[in-house]
Amino acid sequence: MPPVTTAHYVMLSAILMGVGLFGVVTRKNAVIVLMGLELMLNAANLAFVAFARHHGNLQGHVFTFIVIAVAAAEAAVALSIMIALYRLKGSITLDDAQELKG
């Protein structure tokens, strides 16, 4: 069995990034879109940790913790906006948020 190298981790993170982006672009439910966004952030986290191990320094690990904290703040605001949308429209599909066009 071949050893798992940094390249494998980075490839996996690129795939996760692609899956997340696909989810954000194609899904209509706001919560699923948020899941896609979180997946993209965590794909970057995986790349950071893999590179940190590769280079043997801690900057990538520290960055990962910062990203986790920022993602939590983002999710808190995101969910509160979705609750506001649900109270107004009774649903959280993005098709219901289409007043602004032109």
């Binding site: 940094t6 980075v10 993170s13 990034m17 997340g20 966004l37 993209m40 952030l41 794909a43 970057a44 790349a47 950071f48 893999a50 590179f51 940190a52 590769h54 280079h55 900057q59 990538g60 960055f63 990203v67 920022v70 983002e74």
Partner: peptide, 14 residues
């Protein structure tokens, strides 16, 4: 865009 930016940073760090 934050996720794209972050992935770019990860590649530069790499």
């Amino acid at each position: 865009s934050a996720a794209l930016l972050l992935y770019g940073i990860a590649l530069i760090y790499g």
